[in-house]
Amino acid sequence: MENTAIENTVQDTSQIKGWGVDSDTENDPTYPMKHRNNGEHAGYSWERPPQQQTDVEILHSNERPNVSAVFGTSTPPAGLSGMIRRYAFKYSESSYGHWLPLMLADRVGVVEGYLEDFSRGHVPNVFAERGWKAEWKHNRTSLVKRVLVGAVVATAAVAYLRSGSDDSSAKKERRPRRARR
């Protein structure tokens, strides 16, 4: 089937019978949050503030033609997470292709953060970073319970794995004996 392009033309509303006869500018559900001036109708045409200059990589949404006049320069994209972020910005904010890779990049960034700490000779105190001092002070019983439960679960898991490895070693030891017969 032939693919016919639809040709859109701007309508002259003054030629449309009845246009705007029931318009009520006060019936604006966004009032008073918005002082309507219909500036949007002129498109992206306002006098922009001076453009911030930078040598830092700034990603921008593909739903706009440019970077904003000012922007943050915190934590520019870098490493594997940066590569994932660059990929994500090929997709619009309406797409899972944008947000899911960004979530993945955030998790990859956590690992990179550990590596960065180690490379600087810093071993992060995860307990302090998670505010366990405050838990100890204000929620001690719950903290102790969680630590105990965690310890029991970890011990049980280790015991289970060790028993499994003991069994397999025993099997390995038995097999050669059978082979010798």
């Binding site: 949050m33 918005k34 002082h35 309507r36 001036n37 500036g39 949007e40 002129a42 992206y44 306002w46 006098e47 922009r48 503030p49 700034i58 990603l59 921008h60 949404s61 739903e63 706009r64 440019n66 970077v67 904003s68 006049a69 000012v70 922007f71 943050g72 910005f89 904010e93």
Partner: peptide, 29 residues
């Protein structure tokens, strides 16, 4: 973070500035 110049700031929608957030159009900086 609002520029005060874009059409959204001009309509006092300072949370929806179009010149303060490159990464997302759904929210201002």
């Amino acid at each position: 973070i609002a520029c005060g110049k874009c059409v959204f700031c001009q309509q006092e929608l300072y949370g929806n500035c179009h010149e303060s957030n490159s990464q997302a159009t759904a929210v201002g900086g």
